[in-house]
């Protein structure tokens, strides 16, 4: 854990959006700074959690790194090469090593394809010469690895539960043996009990395979559980980076403090106590 495998430097993503307040008849555009100068390092085998409220640029940052959206400025150095400047052919080769897991488990799977076809898609893209039987065997082995029954290979996404769908998504991300997986809120759409299963599966697989994770979430408790380090984003800027212990237990920035305070305590009595306390504090401040 010494050399960073990914260093992002001053990454900025600006969108042109319609400016409805602008005077005049012609539609004018204004800049929306979704990501505005973000820098961080990701070590090999490390999990970096990215947290922040919705709309703060977490997903955009992730998408800019693998060039699903165009970055306006900055660089993303991946093993010595700037991803943002690679040619399409070079980028294709890199994509084998960087995979992504998406938020909505069902929406991220093509409803017309079977589980097997979905998991095999990266193989078809990056190992064009691979034989059908070999591919099938690999897919089945991967299904077992993510805790799925390999006999379900011919089933369609709508026949699976949300948790199982997310396992298919994880299998698809792992099948090319990537070095980095970007998880874009992989558990936000799942039940709490299923969340735990999926997070633990990710942690187990990460330990086994030594991959790095970029784990995006808005749920602090999940991020704390899985991450080595946490980065807090606010309106496209980094407000705080540190080990998860530091950030959670001793937040430095006022926004981080607020964010942590907003996490509900999963014990109704304690949560009630906290609310009463806060109300008293507010009342005292008002006087």
């Amino acid at each position: 854990m010494s050399e960073p495998i990914l260093s992002v430097r001053d990454m900025a993503v600006h969108f042109d959006v319609r400016d409805d307040d602008a005077p005049g008849l012609l539609t004018k555009t204004k800049k929306l700074k979704a990501v505005d100068g973000v820098s961080f390092d990701l070590m090999a085998g490390e999990t970096l959690g990215i947290v922040g409220e919705s709309g703060c640029g977490k997903s955009t940052l992730a998408r800019a790194i693998i060039r699903l959206v165009d970055a306006t400025a900055g660089e993303a150095i991946w093993m010595g090469r700037d991803l943002l400047k690679l040619s399409d052919a070079d980028m294709l080769a890199v994509r084998k090593d960087i995979q992504m897991i998406f938020q909505d488990p069902l929406a991220s799977l093509n409803p017309r394809m079977t589980a097997g076809e979905i998991i095999a898609e990266p193989l078809k893209t990056h190992f064009k010469g691979m034989k059908k039987a070999e591919r099938r065997e690999k897919v089945q082995r991967m299904m077992e690895k993510v805790g799925m029954d390999p006999t379900l290979i011919n089933r369609y996404p709508h026949e699976f539960s949300g948790g199982q769908c997310q396992r298919i998504g994880i299998a698809r991300a792992l099948i090319t043996n990537p070095k980095l997986i970007i998880c874009d809120e992989p558990v936000s759409a799942l039940d709490v009990s299923v969340q735990a299963q999926v997070v633990n599966l990710l942690m187990k697989l990460q330990k086994e395979l030594g991959i790095s994770l970029l784990f995006i979430a808005h749920d602090l408790s999940v991020v704390k559980h899985i991450s080595n380090r946490i980065m807090v984003l606010y309106f496209g800027n980094v407000v705080e980076v540190g080990t998860s212990k530091q950030v959670i237990e001793d937040p430095q920035h006022a926004y981080t403090k607020k964010l942590i305070a907003s996490v509900p305590i999963p014990d109704p009595e304690k949560e009630m106590e906290r609310r009463v306390e806060r109300r008293a504090k507010r009342a005292a401040a008002a006087k």
């Binding site: 693998i66 799977l109 898609e121 990056h126 698809r172």
Partner: peptide
């Protein structure tokens, strides 16, 4: 704009 198309683009299809 569905996520499965994005997933395919992310793997380089």
């Amino acid at each position: 704009n569905k996520e499965f198309v994005e997933a395919a683009r992310a793997t380089g299809v």
